[in-house]
Design a protein around this nucleic acid. Sequence first.
DNA 1: CAAATTTTTGACCGATTGGACAAACGTTAG
DNA 2: CTAACGTTTGTCCAATCGGTCAAAAATTTG
Lengths: 220, 220
Amino acid sequence: MLRRFAGVTATMEGSAPRRTRIQQEKRELILEAALEVFSTNGFRGSTIDQIAEAAGMSKPNLLYYFRRKEDIHETLMQRLLDTWLAPLRELDDIGDPLTELRSYIRRKLEMARDFPRESRLFANEILQGAPRIMPMLEGELKTLVDEKAAIIKGWMRAGKLARTDPWHLIFAIWATTQHYADFDVQVRAVLGADRGGDGRFEDAARFLEQLFLDGLKPKG
Amino acid sequence: MLRRFAGVTATMEGSAPRRTRIQQEKRELILEAALEVFSTNGFRGSTIDQIAEAAGMSKPNLLYYFRRKEDIHETLMQRLLDTWLAPLRELDDIGDPLTELRSYIRRKLEMARDFPRESRLFANEILQGAPRIMPMLEGELKTLVDEKAAIIKGWMRAGKLARTDPWHLIFAIWATTQHYADFDVQVRAVLGADRGGDGRFEDAARFLEQLFLDGLKPKG
DNA sequence: CAAATTTTTGACCGATTGGACAAACGTTAG
DNA sequence: CTAACGTTTGTCCAATCGGTCAAAAATTTG
């Protein structure tokens, strides 16, 4: 008799892998634990034992739901990318350009605040050369960014926005917002006990809005 | 007879550890190799064997110069921090504020271009919670940033700069410049073959200058 | 109920890890 | 030359790694 596995590799046929209630719950539990572990230790720095312990189960039990360590990481990555790019997808041609950009910045900053582990997981992957998601970067991501850069370029041509490089503008928004998730320890250490509390995201939001809209030149 | 070691732990007395010519050269070789390996794989993701091979020597030979893996990382970190904060230390009260900030941004961007491995080594450490340099962040770094933030605040009070949060301004400069080192793979993937070449740093410099000085609002 | 199936676990495996050690080798000073 | 010292390496070790497997335990199905 063939052995059965609760997990399904990503390369299998696209048909829904119909899972039992227990399988769904346990897989969810593992992914949650793995997000915690991977995001703070990186892929190679994390062990299956750590994830299993964080998920409250034995290692062989975990391997019953995900056959390989990489399968967990892959599943996590696929889910992440959808939600991670959602704010940029929402960037819309209709509406006032400055308002549109401001709310994109705000949404990205909220994601850094509410999903710091996802941000760090992504940062870890990119830092190490993106060995597992390179095709996505050159494909899906590039296409999306090019598309949005074209919209921004249109706004600039219409005189609604200062003329500048849309791609580097998007990079700057990513960098400044994700910084508050990826470099959180540093931000809190530098701000100190008094200013490093919960208010730091509102301070950041105010600052970034002013920076991106008006820059640093004094008025008048 | 006591065994001798070419390496000296950081906790030993501060006296110069007088080393032979060979020791200096080999230690330098190891640190160069370790920078390459650590910056792309993280601390836990790197092995002594990898570093030894990259340095062209056997593992026991490497361990003759650095007794533990951590000692290499620690030495690398200490050297890094000095040069890494040098641009901020240069930020000076004399001279025009906008010019001063512009050249700080340019210096940081040049460091991202010329020392990407150092940037990634630092990013790796912060991402994983800065377990090895936390005291430095709360001590030396915070002191330096507070000091420079006070200078910037002075400029703002004098009407030479738009009023905003100096700390978050420094974060934004760090984030936008280091992004081109830490997320280099992503930047190149999104820009594509034509625009992702050597010119990307000049494009970034132009964009960042405009962003920080004038923001995105259209003129007039 | 009982049979079939799914879930869980302890024991185990080969590979890799960081590091120890003594012996061999090279170099230098008297 | 030779003794002392500095350098290099092969070999080894215990711990940890990702992953297997068979059997026990729990659950679902008829």
